[in-house]
Each structure stands twice: as C-alpha cells, then as structure tokens.
Amino acid sequence: MCWRFEEAHEFRAHAREFLSDGLARGHQVRYIAPGDVTALAGDLRGIDRIDEALDTGAAQIVSLDDQYAVEAAIDPAAQVRSYAEATRTALAAGYTGLRVAADCTPLVRTAEQLDAFARYEHLVDHYMTTSPFSAMCGYAASAVDEETFAQVACMHPNTNSPLPGFRLYADHGGTALGGETDFVTGELFSKALDRAAPRPRDGQLVLEAGGLEFLDHNSLLRLAGYAADRDAVLVLRTSWPGAARLVDLLDLVDVRVEAAA
C-alpha cells in the first residue's frame, strides 16, 4: 500500500490502524519514520497494549534519522534481503510475520534516491507476494510532489491517490498491470517498466492485466518492444477488449492477448 498524506496525523492514524491489525494477526510490527524515537513512540499511542508490545519487541520503532545517511540511495536488493532476514527472525521468534509502516518521505529526495527506491518498491513487492511480510509506505504531499509520488505509487498494487492511473506490480512470481496507461503516463510507464524489469520465462513475457482498464497504442508498442528486445512473445492476460483490437490493428505478431484468469 502506498499512501499519500496531506497532514502527518493522517499518516499516523493509518499507520496505527495497519500496525494494530498486524499485532492482532500475531505479526511483529515496525514503525519507521524520521524523528526522535521517543517522539515516534508517541505516534503509536492508541494502539491497544502498545507499551507491552514495545517492551517485548513485538513492536519496534526505527528512526530514519539513524538508519539512512541523508541523501544516500538505498541498495534495492540489499534492502529486500534485509527485510527477508528480519522476517525470518520474526518467524523464528514465534511471530506469524513482519509488518512495517514507514514514512518514506525522506527517502525519495534526489533523483538517484527516487530511482533506487522505486526499483526497491517493486522488488519488495515480489517478496511480499510469497512471504508473511507486509508494508505500508507513506509520502508527505508537502515534500513529495505529484510527479515524484507517481513514480513510486505506480509500482504498488494499491494507493489512496488517483495518481498516476496505472499500476505495474508483483503478482505471485509474475508481474501485473492494472489501471489506465495513455499518452499522459507514457514516459512514466517506460520508466516503471524499466524499473520493474519483468523477465520472460520460456520465451514468454506474461503480464497479468486483469485490472487493466485502458492501454493506448504507444504503451502497447512499448511493452511489445520490451518483450521483443528480450526475444520473448508478450502475453497480455486481460478482459479489456481494446487490447486484442489494438494488437490486430497494429499487426503485432509477437503479442498474444489471453482472457484474464
């Protein structure tokens, strides 16, 4: 889940709700945000038996001020490995999984940070589809402009914002495409595709596009070109009739449209 918030208290309220639900499910939970740890503990007030959870380690607080050097880009793969290790540790300690609510606002300040973080978002999304790890990422509208937010939001299956209109996200070992992509989102779509970097299997690049509502011809040509560059046939699984129509009209021989599951 990718959450754009106007006021900090909105994010805190959603984080409390998300982490409280995690604790009820027997997960270990982690709250990550910029600021002093004591102050961050105050953000979690209201969660049932939060003091006990903090004492036992069922709930943890991490200040972004400690964890990340200012303006350093994360290493996407290392970051996912780190969460995979933390999830294994949580499971070993008897928890049912790990859940994180993070205010990621300071992590996308520079172009380099943003690129690394968007790639990480997709990688961790893959990890989440197969592991008892869940996360909610918050971005303050006051510090993260719409264009920047759209770049991370489009890598998530869910967001509370209408931006950017399409979603390219991990789906049970594969990649899914949902929403609407058109000439307005064209450049962003190319960037998202590059960052998600879906890999063909057995000569096919399959996109689960059950949630696809619109795809313009340039986006389809981008996808077809991406698959062709990897010597793969593009398989679009969608129930949106426009996809098959476009494939036919554009004479795309290495693209197949199949019914969505």
Partner: peptide, 10 residues
Amino acid sequence: MADLQLITGE
C-alpha cells in the same frame, strides 16, 4: 465501447 475509448484517447 473499447473502440470509442481508443478513438477518444487518440
């Protein structure tokens, strides 16, 4: 309907 969506979009 998809034809119309595509036409409008273009």
